[in-house]
Protein backbone atom coordinates (compact mmCIF):
# COMPACT_ATOMS: atom_id res chain seq x y z
CA UNK A 1 0.00 0.00 0.00
CA UNK A 2 1.35 3.39 -0.98
CA UNK A 3 0.05 6.96 -0.96
CA UNK A 4 2.26 7.99 -3.87
CA UNK A 5 0.63 7.44 -7.25
CA UNK A 6 2.81 5.88 -9.92
CA UNK A 7 3.68 8.04 -12.93
CA UNK A 8 3.24 6.87 -16.49
CA UNK A 9 7.00 6.39 -16.86
CA UNK A 10 7.19 4.34 -13.68
CA UNK A 11 4.35 2.09 -14.79
CA UNK A 12 5.95 1.73 -18.23
CA UNK A 13 9.14 0.38 -16.65
CA UNK A 14 7.15 -1.93 -14.36
CA UNK A 15 5.04 -3.17 -17.29
CA UNK A 16 8.09 -3.92 -19.42
CA UNK A 17 9.52 -5.83 -16.49
CA UNK A 18 6.67 -8.34 -16.71
CA UNK A 19 6.52 -8.54 -20.48
CA UNK A 20 3.71 -6.05 -21.09
CA UNK A 21 5.53 -4.48 -24.03
CA UNK A 22 2.61 -4.13 -26.43
CA UNK A 23 0.50 -1.69 -24.41
CA UNK A 24 -0.50 1.53 -26.14
CA UNK A 25 -0.18 4.77 -24.20
CA UNK A 26 -3.92 4.61 -23.47
CA UNK A 27 -3.60 1.04 -22.16
CA UNK A 28 -0.56 1.99 -20.08
CA UNK A 29 -2.59 4.79 -18.57
CA UNK A 30 -5.34 2.27 -17.78
CA UNK A 31 -2.75 -0.01 -16.13
CA UNK A 32 -1.44 2.97 -14.17
CA UNK A 33 -4.92 3.82 -12.92
CA UNK A 34 -5.89 0.28 -11.83
CA UNK A 35 -2.49 -0.27 -10.21
CA UNK A 36 -2.72 3.01 -8.30
CA UNK A 37 -6.20 2.05 -7.08
CA UNK A 38 -4.86 -1.30 -5.91
CA UNK A 39 -2.02 0.40 -4.04
CA UNK A 40 -4.56 2.40 -2.04
CA UNK A 41 -6.71 -0.64 -1.19
CA UNK A 42 -5.66 -1.85 2.21
CA UNK A 43 -5.73 -5.55 3.03
CA UNK A 44 -4.41 -4.94 6.53
CA UNK A 45 -7.75 -5.67 8.23
CA UNK A 46 -7.87 -8.93 6.32
CA UNK A 47 -4.37 -10.03 7.20
CA UNK A 48 -4.17 -8.66 10.77
CA UNK A 49 -5.27 -11.85 12.50
CA UNK A 50 -3.05 -14.24 10.55
CA UNK A 51 -0.56 -16.17 12.61
CA UNK A 52 2.46 -18.04 11.24
CA UNK A 53 0.68 -21.38 11.30
CA UNK A 54 -2.48 -20.27 9.51
CA UNK A 55 -2.70 -22.42 6.39
CA UNK A 56 -4.06 -21.27 3.02
CA UNK A 57 -7.58 -22.35 2.07
CA UNK A 58 -6.35 -24.05 -1.08
CA UNK A 59 -3.92 -26.52 0.49
CA UNK A 60 -4.99 -29.71 -1.19
CA UNK A 61 -5.50 -33.16 0.21
CA UNK A 62 -4.04 -36.03 -1.75
CA UNK A 63 -5.96 -39.27 -2.12
CA UNK A 64 -4.17 -42.58 -2.32
CA UNK A 65 -4.04 -44.42 -5.63
CA UNK A 66 -4.76 -48.17 -5.64
CA UNK A 67 -1.00 -48.76 -5.66
CA UNK A 68 -0.56 -46.36 -2.74
CA UNK A 69 -3.25 -48.13 -0.70
CA UNK A 70 -1.53 -51.47 -1.22
CA UNK A 71 1.94 -50.29 -0.24
Amino acid sequence: MSDTPLTLEEIRVMAEGIGLNELSDKQLEQLRQVTNIKRTQSSSALFASLGPADEPANVFGLTASEEGKQS
Binding site: S43, F47, L50, E55
Partner: peptide, 13 residues
Protein backbone atom coordinates in the same frame (compact mmCIF):
# COMPACT_ATOMS: atom_id res chain seq x y z
CA UNK B 1 -0.70 -10.86 -0.69
CA UNK B 2 -2.18 -13.67 -2.76
CA UNK B 3 -1.04 -16.31 -0.28
CA UNK B 4 -2.22 -14.25 2.68
CA UNK B 5 -5.61 -13.79 1.02
CA UNK B 6 -5.97 -17.57 0.74
CA UNK B 7 -4.95 -17.87 4.41
CA UNK B 8 -7.54 -15.26 5.37
CA UNK B 9 -10.03 -17.12 3.24
CA UNK B 10 -9.62 -20.18 5.42
CA UNK B 11 -10.32 -18.03 8.50
CA UNK B 12 -13.45 -16.63 6.86
CA UNK B 13 -14.63 -20.13 5.98
Amino acid sequence: DYVNATRARRQLV
